[in-house]
């Protein structure tokens, strides 16, 4: 009797690791605000997946990881709303959303 692939903690950790590395790559290499926001969402998702995986496999109290992941989702939604409205305002004002070209806080 051997456990299936989805019964190993490492499988989930590796998926989360790949998502985190992809998000980090996108965060550093993409120049636009919205692309960077998408990468941040990937990173937050990797964190949530890790929380739930550790919660299911290791934690004695199996409500903690679920609660924390719910909080991460709420914060990610708030962060996305703020980031997107900032992106819209910056685009209206500077006519670009390239992070490198917007170097002044005031015009």
């Amino acid at each position: 009797m051997q456990p299936a692939i989805f019964g190993h903690l490492e499988a989930y950790l590796l998926v989360a690791l790949c998502l985190f590395a992809l998000g980090l790559y996108g965060l550093v290499s993409r120049p636009g605000f919205i692309s960077m926001l998408i990468s941040v969402e990937l990173i937050l998702n990797a964190a949530g997946l890790n929380f739930v995986a550790f919660n299911t496999f290791l934690a004695p109290d199996k409500t903690v990881g679920q609660t924390f992941t719910l909080f991460i989702m709420g914060l990610a939604a708030a962060e996305a709303a703020i980031c997107l409205s900032i992106a819209v305002v910056v685009y209206r004002r500077f006519r670009t959303i390239l992070a490198d070209e917007i170097s002044e806080l005031k015009d």
């Binding site: 980090l24 790559y25 550093v28 290499s29 692309s35």
Partner: peptide, 17 residues
């Protein structure tokens, strides 16, 4: 989506790896 320069791509690849 705006294009990224090769330096940024290399930096991103390094950080991710």
């Amino acid at each position: 989506a705006p294009r990224a320069g090769p330096g940024k791509l290399a930096a991103g690849f390094g950080v991710g790896l």
